[in-house]
Amino acid sequence: MTDAPVKLEVVGLRTLSPMQRRLLSVLTHAALLAVSVLMLYPLLWMLAASFRPENEIFTSASIWPSEWSLDSYVRGWNGLRTSFGTFFTNSFIVSILSVCGNVLACSMAAFAFARLNFKFKNFWFAMMLMTLMLPYQVTLIPQYVLFRQLGWVNTFLPLVVPKFLAADGFFIFLMVQFFRGLPKELDEAAQMDGCSPWRIYWKIIMPLSMPVLATAAIFTFIWTWDDFFGPLIYLSEMKTYTVMLGLRTFTDSTGESDYGGLFAMSVASIVPIFLFFLFFQRLLIEGIATTGMKR
């Protein structure tokens, strides 16, 4: 993305004097800064609250704690029967398996749609697009019945197996768009040399598609990490809880008395997402800009 600050004069500001232009720019910055502060204040406040001594949390609306303490983190980490260490481990397992499943299964389907020809391809593609619009509630109950009969309740399987079956059509769509942009001559040349479709997929398309695979991997990780509904339905034993379920239980049991611990664990729960944001911001934003993601 080009962010060159050169368009200023093109957008019809030419009629303004330099003084007015400067004023306008300052006002715009002021407005944007005000909105930023307003938007981010709650986040900063929660961050600060998590480091405050317990008695100070509600006495001040200011950002800066009078003294920094890690007590809330220690208390929160062991605030429930099972420690948050277990919840974090569970969340990581589910998220990483989901990433593997989505990247593999969605790229395979996308490869078929973008680079191979077969009967009824357009029909299946249309079906895939339809599933994008489908509210998950319609499949929820039969899926639950199915997974229960398979004995998968209280395991991670209901959360992970659908990812290996490319259930998230959105990522297929994302990858199809990218694969279509790769030069067709690559496949043709490889085919001439006797390359099987599998080798074309694995040796040519996948290595060239790292940006889109990374985008899909990161969004899958974040969405799975954040997911509350799936774990809420399928996981009822505390040792299988993900971080989000742990937080919810925290609010129900001790949350009313231990706000410090609750805030500390809330902050901890968004740290992985924040790290992705920090390091892969460009990839995330480009992913949204080019494909229009919901979040």
Binding site: A109, L116, P142, L165
Partner: peptide, 21 residues
């Protein structure tokens, strides 16, 4: 080849989407 690559999605489509609907 197309259907082989599509197989995981097809299983999911029938088993987790169409069937449940």
């Amino acid at each position: 080849p197309g259907y082989l690559f599509l197989l995981p999605w097809l299983i999911g489509f029938f088993g987790l989407t169409i069937g449940p609907i």
